[in-house]
Structures are given as C-alpha cells and as structure tokens.
C-alpha cells in the first residue's frame, strides 16, 4: 500500500510528465489533418485508429520513465531485496505508468476526437476501448522497460521488443470501437486484460531480479 502511495505522490510532484504526455498526444493528432487532408469524412474514418496509435506511442514514450529513476537511485535494488512481493511492486509500477501516461490522454480523448471530426457515439466506444485496452499496454510497457533497464540502447530496442505484444490490444481495441461496441471484441479485450493482469507482473518481477544485477 505504501508503494502505491509513493507512486501517487511522485506523480503529484511531477506534473510536467503528465503535461508532456498530453502535449505529445495533442500535437501528434494535430499533425494528421495537416499531413492527410482536412476533409472531415476521411478523418472520421481514420480517427479511431489514429488515436489508438498515438496512445500506443505515448505509452512507449513514457515506458521507462519511473523505472529508470528507481534503477538509478537504487530504489529498485531495495524493492527486490524487500519483503513486499516483487510482483506487487511491478503491478504498482504498471498502475503508475497508466496513471501518468495514459489516463490523462483518455480524459482528453473527446478533444482529440473533435479534432478528427468524430461522432459522439464512436467517441464513447473509443473511450471505453481505451479504458479497457490501455492497461494492457501499460503492463507490457513496464515489462519491456524492465528488460531494457541499464542497457543504454534507448527507445528503439524497447519498440522492437514490445511491438508484437502491443498488436493484440491495438487490434481488439480499434475493432471494438469501430464496430460500435460489438460484444465479441469487448469480451476478448477484457479477457486479454485479465490474462495480462494475472501473468505479466510475475514475468516483470523475474526480469527485475535480472535487471538489478546490471
């Protein structure tokens, strides 16, 4: 519990990080009409996919932010040595990542949707799909960040490692939103979230033990 409190406290201490994620999202979405066309019909068709891709990139961008500082100042070592179960630590890290990087973006999705001429119904389903799907992104991003911790290879390695795993949430999320909530995709996405929640923190924990040895 103390861990979660610490994570939230750090989040409140550094609003710049939240703002950075938001700005990134808004700016990238603003580039699409400029690059493709201002035609609302075309934008409307692309909007769900574009916002999902932007969310995915934001998630990757913020992946190793809080882990890196824990790694550098030695907190991670103490977490590995401590009595609190390591999978719980990793789960909390994922929650922190989701709260700083992804939740703010989901909150401003209506704004992004307006920029891309979305209908309000699609927008609702898009937000629903993001709410269910983005925690999966966070869980995988923290796993990937833990794997590349201390390797000094930058974001490219992270992208290569994570890309295959981000495909299922991306596909299921966009399909769910574009079919306006066809339950089939919703169940699958929720199932994916459950499976990820139950397995990935353990995988991340096993990688954390390796990472502190670097």
């Amino acid at each position: 519990m103390g861990l979660l409190k610490r994570e939230l406290r750090l989040l409140l201490r550094s609003p710049a990080e939240v703002v950075q994620s938001l700005l990134f999202g808004v700016l990238v979405v603003a580039l699409f009409p400029l690059a493709i066309t201002p035609d609302p019909d075309v934008l409307r068709q692309l909007s769900v996919g574009l916002i999902w891709v932007v969310t995915l990139l934001t998630s990757l961008l913020a992946a190793d932010r809080s882990l890196l500082s824990d790694f550098e100042d030695g907190s991670l070592e103490q977490m590995v040595l401590g009595v609190a179960p390591l999978w719980w630590v990793c789960l909390v890290k994922s929650v922190g990542h989701w709260l700083t990087a992804l939740l703010p973006l989901i909150v401003i999705t209506p704004l992004l949707g307006m920029m891309l001429a979305m209908t309000s119904e699609t927008m609702l389903w898009l937000m629903a799909s993001l709410l269910v799907g983005t925690p999966v992104l966070s869980l995988f991003c923290v796993l990937g960040a833990m794997m590349t911790l201390g390797l000094n290879r930058g974001g490219a390695l992270l992208l290569v490692i994570l890309m295959p795993f981000l495909v299922p949430p991306l596909v299921l999320g966009t399909q769910w939103a574009m079919t306006l909530g066809q339950p089939f995709y919703g169940y699958l996405l929720a199932g994916l979230l459950c499976v990820s929640l139950m397995t990935l923190p353990f995988a991340t924990a096993s990688v954390a033990r390796i990472a502190v040895g670097r």
Binding site: L3, R6, E72, D73, G74, V83
Partner: peptide, 25 residues
Amino acid sequence: LGHRYGLNPRLTVLENVQFLMALQG
C-alpha cells in the same frame, strides 16, 4: 547498503525512510 542508497530525489527525507522501512515490512 550499496553505492546507490535507494533514495528518490523527489521525495522528502521522511518519505524516503518511511518507504524503505515499508519495504522491509
């Protein structure tokens, strides 16, 4: 205690110690 002390630079002294103690249960 190693070369890296496990102190987060953005947390206060009290918060850091509290957290490190909590890790030890």
